[in-house]
Simulated scan of single mutants.
Amino acid sequence: MLNIGCHLSASKGFKNMGEVALSIGANTFQFFTRNPRGGKAKEIDEKDVQAFLKLAEENNFAKLVAHAPYTVNPCSKDMKTREFAHMIIEDDLRRMEYLPGNYYNFHPGSHVGQGIESGIEIIASLLNDLMKKDQSTIVLLETMSGKGSEVGSSFEELKAIIDKIQLKDKIGVCMDTCHVNDAGYDLVNNLDEVLSDFDEIVGLDKLYAMHINDSLNPLASHKDRHAKIGDGHIGLEAICNIINHPKLCHLPFILETPNELEGYQKEIAVLKEHYK
Rank of each mutant, 00 (worst) to 15 (best):
R82P: 00
D48Q: 10
P100C: 13
F106Y: 12
K15A: 10
L140T: 14
D129A: 14
H211L: 05
L255K: 10
H179L: 03
R94F: 08
M1G: 12
E117G: 11
F52E: 10
L64Y: 11
L158A: 08
L191C: 00
T71R: 00
L248K: 02
C249A: 14
Q166M: 00
Q135N: 09
D224L: 09
H233Q: 06
S23H: 12
E237S: 07
D192P: 02
I239H: 03
T143Y: 07
K170F: 07
V173Q: 09
E142C: 05
L167V: 03
T33G: 02
K168Q: 15
D224R: 14
I201S: 11
L55H: 14
E260W: 00
L140Q: 13
K133H: 11
P69M: 03
Y208K: 15
E156S: 14
K12C: 00
I229M: 13
M131I: 15
G25K: 04
C75M: 11
G18Y: 12
A85D: 02
H111R: 01
L219Q: 04
N181T: 12
T177L: 01
A62I: 03
Q166Y: 07
N241L: 01
K272A: 03
D92R: 01
G263T: 09
V188G: 07
F253R: 13
E97H: 07
I116Q: 14
Q30M: 15
K147W: 02
